[in-house]
Amino acid sequence: MSDYILETTGLTKEFKGFAAVSDVNLNIRRGDIHALIGPNGAGKTTVFNLLTKFLPPTRGCILFQGQDITHEAPAATARRGLVRSFQISATFPHLTVLENVRIGLQRKLGTEFHFWKPERTLDVLNSRAMELLADVDLTQFAGTITSEMPYGRKRALEIATTLALDPAMMLLDEPTQGMGQEDIARVVDLIRKVSANRTIVMVEHNLSVVANLCDRITVLQRGSVLAEGTYDEVSKNPQVLEAYVGSNDMNDAHH
């Protein structure tokens, strides 16, 4: 089996002549926490959308676990175990916290199309859902309507829901965005905890989070890969420093 769980070659996305992502070759090692950083507009979220098939690429190809998934439907890719989160918190706001996690678990039961069965047939998932909630410290919120929880907790719930699929690879889009110090520390711990036995790719602005969490870093600028390596390698790269100097992102990064 290849060392790389995910490989892209020549990945390109053009919007009406403007190349949001051009010729990106990514190699994500199995088991790594891999960061995707770069100034605003560098194409990080577009790369995410391409990898998870929410956008079709203009050119290039994507291999996941050695399989070509370039032209697959997004839900099918998710079922392979490549599961993403979103920049804005992706929960089901009017369901309870427990129900949110259960949505993630439910597909395994194989009854998702059974409209003739009562809802209580889902109760067999409750104990597994509670375990997942315990993992992210949300046990006491199980019965809460999700929209009533604080923001940081919603991000934790999102991770629990993603974990319900037990994905081989998780893509996290700015998991600490808009959080206070305390929440950030909690989410960093959580990501480290869930990274056991799986690969994580994350878009992240907070460079201190990147520095102490990530094994490898890819720097994007204007849709292309500027540098790739460990934090030490990348942070000494003069091109990277130049790209960050004077950009607002550098300031953002130190929040």
Binding site: A90, F92, L95, E99, Q106, E112, H114, F115, K117, P118
Partner: peptide
């Protein structure tokens, strides 16, 4: 139903 539960999820947040 289990199906209805997914319908709710779709209505609440389709991309998710």
């Amino acid at each position: 139903s289990p199906f209805g539960q997914i319908l709710k999820a779709i209505r609440e947040n389709e991309p998710r």
